[in-house]
């Protein structure tokens, strides 16, 4: 119906324009004629804008963002895929090598170590969601100075990941770190968490959970603001409390917050680069590498001159992310429809 309206309006504009030009037709100079034509153009432009405003405004507002997104995200994705078929040191000539980078990946121990670590990251990083929920529930009360407590709990997310990494590497330090002082207090032998191939990834994930929990907490805190108090009262009247109340009444209402928390945590886990770089530099002997770090190492680090190979790793990482997120979105979509 809106469409029809705009069409008929357009017709009107045209007729007006025709009328105008007829009135000016008698005048002498060409300049007048041009000026008149301009004003008609102006007018018709303005009218076009007025009529299509509703349709054009969103496009115009989206334009800068879309442009950035295309230039800095979409195009580079295709470029990465392209580079992954070449052998290239980033400086000289590219040499087309087909899928041999991928073939090499399939037979690369370091790649599997990174992949395994990425999976550990994905699974354990999810702990940030229940942890964040717990803290949010705990802080969701009205007492004096609650804002200060909230800010303090949110603090780890505000400080840089690099600082988090440094703090935790001091915490784990085998000779003077707090962690081993605690172990010693209980009579246990010191563990050099960051120098032990079995512990190192877990050690880094714990460091990562600290800020990530804060992030999830803030998402849930905003979510809790929107929880309908009438529903809670109604549930209370029906004698629901504790975990049951949480599970059947509160959590369903927090679904949007959970969704966002899941997405940011998955992405955070897959791109866990800075902590690895700061805390261990991928070591000991590469056992704490994740795909993002391995890609950096191969392509950009001090000894990395393999852009093609790095791009191949990046493509695999992208594929994993796409599968994970697509599956997740599909599940969310199905759940939504189910209601």
């Amino acid at each position: 119906m809106r469409c029809g309206q705009s069409l008929s309006l357009k017709g009107l504009v045209v007729s007006i324009a025709v009328d105008d030009s007829i009135t000016v037709d008698d005048s002498v100079t060409a300049e007048d004629f041009i000026a008149a034509e301009d004003s008609i153009k102006d007018k018709s432009m303005r009218d076009y804008w007025r009529i299509n405003q509703q349709r054009l405004a969103p496009v115009l507002f989206l334009m800068p963002g879309l442009l950035m997104f295309v230039v800095y995200v979409i195009i580079p994705i295709f470029q990465s895929v392209d580079i992954s078929f070449y052998s290239w040191d980033g400086l000289g000539e590219k040499e087309y090598v087909g899928i041999s980078n991928y073939v090499e990946l399939m037979d690369d121990e370091a790649f599997y170590t990174s992949l395994k670590n990425n999976i550990i990251w994905l699974v354990l990083y999810m702990l940030a969601i229940p942890a964040g929920l717990f803290v949010a529930l705990f802080l969701n009360q009205n007492i004096r100075g609650i804002r200060i407590y909230k800010s303090l709990f949110f603090f780890p997310f505000v400080i840089s990941q690099v600082v988090v990494g440094l703090v935790f590497s001091w915490f784990y330090d085998p000779s003077y770190g707090l962690f081993n002082k605690i172990l010693a207090f209980f009579g246990a032998d010191p563990i050099a968490v960051l120098a032990d191939e079995d512990w190192v990834t877990y050690g880094i994930i714990i460091a990562g959970l600290w800020p990530q929990t804060a992030y999830c907490m803030i998402l849930y805190l905003t979510g809790l603001n929107a929880v309908d108090s009438e529903q809670i009262e109604a549930a209370r009247l029906d004698n629901a409390k504790g975990l049951k109340l949480l599970w059947y009444i509160i959590l369903p209402q927090l679904r949007p917050a959970t969704f966002i928390a899941m997405v940011v945590t998955i992405i955070g886990a897959l791109r866990s680069f800075d902590l690895v770089s700061i805390m261990t530099n991928g070591g000991p002997w590469g056992s704490s590498r994740v795909l993002a770090f391995y890609m950096y190492e191969q392509a950009f680090s001090e000894y990395g001159f393999r852009m093609g190979y790095g791009a191949a790793i990046a493509v695999v990482l992208l594929a994993i992310m796409m599968i994970y997120i697509a599956a997740f979105l599909y599940k969310m979509y199905r759940d939504e429809r189910g209601h």
Partner: peptide, 22 residues
Amino acid sequence: FDRDAPAEMASAGMEGFQEFMV
């Protein structure tokens, strides 16, 4: 070692040395 050997060999080698030491 890392100036005489090319970059890739140097990084793989040094990682190996570290692992060997442990």
